[in-house]
Design a protein around this nucleic acid. Structure first.
Lengths: 229, 229
DNA sequence: AGCTTTTGTGACACCAATGTAACGCTATTA
DNA sequence: TAATAGCGTTACATTGGTGTCACAAAAGCT
């Protein structure tokens, strides 16, 4: 199940600053992951899939603005909102920050209260960003925007988990996903669920997909996991 | 309505300031309407349906913050983003500004460049919002002009919130909106309201739509949100 | 063939998500 | 000023999805 606490990736090289911010964010109820430099940040973006990134402008290694650019150019599933922090107050920086893709901008010294308000504000904006996408595989069509799935033009009824599961499979037809990968992807990281649960849901998904009598499009790869097609 | 140039309502009592901003906004390609005080502003909101409002905090007549509050309580089609200008730089003001319903906040003396960037940033947020005058879905007709809704030619009675809610749904029939997205669009950013409140209003909207005995056109998508059709 | 490991699946207790009535509050209206 | 309408919250009922388990079935292995 999706964690009810939004995950914040905090990128700040100054340890004291990082500490303070992390503490404050946590006491506001966020899950916080922090990085000290740009490289670590990019790594954690992949591994942790944060809901929002609070990003210091000045960083050793990859600069904040560079991170921003890379994030926006990723053909990733969803755009993660970026809140940029900076010690430089010149207007040019601000503009460049916003137009490079930062979604908001706070100049140091900022007030913690303000920062919190802005983080909340950004989160509310894009939170469960439904990726307006339409996936197809053979006669199966999944529309992320309307949350509708059809097979051979017959509407299917899927539960939330089955929907996410199918949507994962359809993202890369043919790819074999291990149970652990599926747990990460569909259930969310830091969730303790027996990996056999995946089997059960794959079973349920199969039943739902075949309800109007088509062939089973899911393939079991013994010892490895499952795949579509 | 001409979509290409977003319309900005500029509310600023100082003529020189107004002139400068208006000029700059126009040369950025915006349509600009300006007001010198709060009363005029409220009037122009009705008449011009701006896409965004740039609002000075200190105004003769109705204060900026008061305008903000009134805007949020109106039964308009959608929440118009408000960018607040202020000469007061205390953090408390900022937070209060955000939580009163302003969507962003710029402290004087601001740079014109920064202001432009923020205006664009806000517009990016809500842009694909239709300013549509008349929306239809099946036998439901919503007239934004007259604020009237009919179903099967029978007039319906909706409260302001239900009206905005329905109008959001009708903008993109079939699309699933999460509770957070609905809060954002219908209630406005930075209004901290429990997301269960959405459920209640959807319920009220349902009751209103079915009052003459039609089928319920709203779809509940478990774990995701609501959609029309 | 026997035996072991992996996967399929029905049953079920549990709980999270949703529907809804009721209530106190505020703003608007008469 | 009194009355009314709309709002946000809460509490409770209800539904239906979920995770786990136990056992059956299938696939490897020797």
């Amino acid at each position: 199940m999706a964690q009810d606490h939004p995950k914040v990736l905090l990128v700040e090289d100054e340890p004291a600053q990082r500490e303070v911010l992390s503490y404050n964010l946590q006491s506001e109820g966020f899950d916080v992951v922090s990085a000290a430099d740009g490289d670590e940040a990019m790594l954690l973006v992949e591994e942790e899939s944060p809901d929002i990134i609070v990003l210091d402008w000045m960083l050793p290694g990859i600069s904040g603005i560079e991170i921003c650019r890379r994030l926006k150019s990723r053909s990733e599933t969803r755009a993660i909102p970026v809140l940029m922090l900076s010690a430089r107050s010149e207007e040019v920086d601000k503009v460049r920050g916003l137009e490079t893709g930062a979604d908001d901008y706070v100049v140091k010294p900022y007030s913690v209260l303000e920062l919190m308000a802005r983080v909340r504000s950004q989160l509310r904006r894009v939170r469960p960003a439904s990726v307006g996408e339409r996936l197809e595989f053979e006669d199966i069509v999944l529309d992320a925007e309307t949350h509708r799935v059809t097979r051979a033009d017959e509407p299917l009824k899927l539960g939330p988990t089955e929907f996410r599961l199918l949507s994962t499979f359809m993202e890369k037809p043919g790819r074999v996903w291990s149970r652990e990968q599926l747990l990460d992807r569909v259930w969310g990281r830091d969730i303790y669920v027996d990996s056999r649960t995946v089997d059960v849901h794959v079973g349920r998904l199969r039943k739902a997909l075949c309800v109007h009598g088509g062939a089973d499009p899911l393939r079991t790869v013994r010892g490895a996991g499952y795949a579509l097609g």
